[in-house]
């Protein structure tokens, strides 16, 4: 992210904070929207949230690291979530994960060097009828075999 883009986003953060200022329990919605804006929760943003909401930064950091959807590291353009819920697990979701690791040459939790993909193991996505399943951003792909993976990744090139 260039400095200018980052600055613009910090300005947008002010709108988010303004909107939630008087809400009870506003921290979670603020963090969700901040993450959507930046793609992650940058330190500067956490500090600014603290200044406006008067929640100590330590507590914000605590909340941000407690929940698995919040991330302090920038993410790839596309997040690939491999469902390792029970229904997918008993239908060999591990082989899907292994294939993605091979194709992208990264471990779960990491992003590719070009900033394109982030690979994650997720909990049940709730489409157990289609197991095994992966989700790329908001698109769900079901009834997969490991050999389907290269074709799917191609769509995002």
């Amino acid at each position: 992210m260039s400095d200018i883009a980052f600055k613009e986003k910090m300005e947008k953060l002010e709108h988010i904070l303004e909107e939630h200022k008087n809400k009870q329990g506003a921290l979670m919605p603020i963090l969700h929207e901040t993450q959507e804006l930046f793609g992650y929760l940058p330190e500067e943003a956490q500090k600014r949230i603290s200044e406006v909401t008067l929640v100590p930064t330590a507590e914000i950091y605590g909340v941000a690291t407690f929940y698995s959807r919040f991330t302090l590291k920038p993410r790839g353009k596309y997040t690939i979530g491999v469902c390792l819920g029970t229904a997918c697990y008993v239908k060999d979701a591990q082989s899907i994960m292994d294939r993605l690791k091979d194709e992208l040459k990264i471990k779960p939790g990491d992003s590719t060097d070009d900033g394109k993909f982030t690979l994650e193991a997720t909990r049940c996505l709730g489409c157990c009828g289609l197991a095994p399943v992966i989700m790329i951003n908001e698109d769900v792909y079901g009834k997969l075999a490991a050999d389907d993976i290269p074709g799917i990744l191609k769509k995002y090139e």
Binding site: G85, T86, A87, Y89, R123, C124, G126, C128, G129
Partner: peptide, 11 residues
């Protein structure tokens, strides 16, 4: 917050 893996009725 249907978190049980394998349950999707709430969804």
């Amino acid at each position: 917050d249907e978190g049980d893996p394998g349950a999707f009725m709430d969804r």
